[in-house]
């Protein structure tokens, strides 16, 4: 059922609409969510509308607007939402593949490091959402052969520029920070600049390709 969803409280002032139903990421549902996100951004009492991967979190001032009202807007909005026109920009991002996880990651999948590099750089990715860290892009379009669970314990310092994958998703580290994802390589591409009005370089709907700038062994 395309319209199934789970709605849950995320504390007093936030609500999460999850339309994934535990299944794989779906581009069509994401496009509808982005339309819903846009329609909610000016709603009374709403502070933040945060698209995730097949989900949407809305934060609001619970003293200014009733949680039930947000709930109603989310549900009605979801049923009405139609995908917005495809207007994303395109970005080519040069990657030097290698790093602490590449060999082990490949071995865990029964692949060679070269297979991983080729599969990762062949993908056509879309920015599904931006978040976690400042300007971090959640990229859909990862080859399912590269899908693996996240690490059991997050690593404390994954470096800025690390090109990473986790679950069925791909991403790039905009800053050095903890992450439970696997590191496949490194890029110099700038993802975030707090001195710009729109601090994040990539936005939901944008297209990304990774090019091979080198492979380190």
């Amino acid at each position: 059922m395309a319209d199934e969803f789970i709605l849950s409280d995320a504390g007093t002032g936030a609500m999460l609409l999850d339309v994934a139903k535990g299944s794989a990421f779906d581009e069509g549902r994401q496009a509808r969510l982005l339309a819903l996100a846009e329609s909610l951004s000016d709603a009374h009492g709403v502070e933040d509308v945060v698209p995730g991967m097949n989900n949407l979190m809305v934060t609001f001032d619970p003293l200014a607007v009733d949680a039930g009202e947000i709930e109603r807007r989310l549900l009605e909005g979801w049923h009405r939402a139609t995908p917005i026109e495809d207007s994303g920009r395109s970005h080519d991002i040069a990657v030097v593949y290698g790093g602490p996880d590449l060999q082990e990651f490949a071995a865990g999948l029964g692949l060679s490091a070269d297979d991983v590099v080729n599969l990762h750089s062949a993908g056509a990715y879309r920015v599904a959402a931006v978040g976690a860290m400042p300007g971090f892009p959640y990229l859909s379009g990862l080859d399912p052969r590269l899908a693996t669970p996240r690490r059991a314990l997050p690593r404390q310092g994954v470096p800025k520029g690390a090109v990473i994958v986790g679950g069925g998703q791909a991403g790039i580290m905009p800053i050095t920070a903890p992450s439970g994802w696997h590191i496949l390589g490194h890029t110099d591409f700038t993802l975030f600049d707090p001195h710009r009005a729109f601090p994040a370089t990539l936005r939901p709907g944008d297209r990304v390709r990774f090019t091979i700038a080198g492979v380190e062994r």
């Binding site: 936030a14 990421f25 995730g52 989900n55």
Partner: peptide
């Protein structure tokens, strides 16, 4: 046990 897709979180989660 299932992997979740990434989603927005707030302080207090």
């Amino acid at each position: 046990r299932r992997e979740l897709l990434s989603h927005g979180i707030v302080p207090g989660t």
